[in-house]
Amino acid sequence: MNRNLLRILAALVAVAAVALPAFAGAYPLQVARNVILYMALAITWDMLLRSGQISFGIAGLFGLGAYASVLGVLRAGMSPLLSIAFAGAFAGLAALLIGFLILRLRAIYFSIVTLALAEIFRIVIQNLHDFTGGPEGLVLDGVILGGSASGLYWLTLAGLAVALGASWWFEKSKFHFALTAIRNNETAAKSSGIDIFRWLLATFVITSVIQGFLGGIYGQSYGFATPDSVFDANFTLLPLAMALLGGIHSTVGPIFGAVLLGLAAEWLKLQIPYGHLVVYGVIIIIVILFIPGGLYGLIKKANRASEGRKA
């Protein structure tokens, strides 16, 4: 496929995504909102993965953002939209402080610490009864945008646009070079003048800002936050599975993966209630074992093979 055709196709998909509320009912819109939210999270997870760091902390920063936003409205009297921006800033600040401590860690040590952090956030918030409402959480007086289905959809779509924009910027800027070099060989990266810690910290903070921002959107869209809902491990596991299935180290991969797995999950939920997570697990295992590059990786490989035949 040539580049212009792809551009036109992408533009059409974008227009269709924005126009969806005009021809979709409440249920499909709700499904689309979910898919879009997970897609955005999957993209942010992949952005950090491009440096070789595997985070299991998405749910932690997402939940932190959701609480920051709900608390911003309830305790500081922020407008809902402002509270979403505040959620991003708060998660980013948290990531900056945490990053200083944990970004010296690598591989499984980094992953485990991020997993633990998400759990620590949940436990701390759950135990600050007076401020956060404890296990029962907090409920807002109303939902943002009056709870309009298309409004909430567009809000989530805006969250995706931020994630996509950041990911695209990473691919086109010095981030691409720095993160790829760090992933491949840190020693060689240093010898090319790359300040590894600084680039990892920047990436961790930026992806956390977006995850917190998405958490804020989520909190405002449902009008409440409880420890169990916003720190749900699914906010870590589903984006991870989507990125793996679609193809890591790219923007396009997580998009594919989110659409496929998101729609499959909705369908499976109806077929085998509560059993759909098992199917998820099986898909992750199959992808890791047999198609480590994901679906986008397969496409790229096929593309390269056909170019090879032409040459």
């Binding site: 010095k174 060989n185 003048g193």
Partner: peptide, 27 residues
Amino acid sequence: ARTYQLIHPLENLTVIENVMIGSVFSR
């Protein structure tokens, strides 16, 4: 500057991109 005994060319980067890295970050 230095080169390495065990060379790991950066995958996913083309030849020119590999060479650019030094200019981008050192300079």
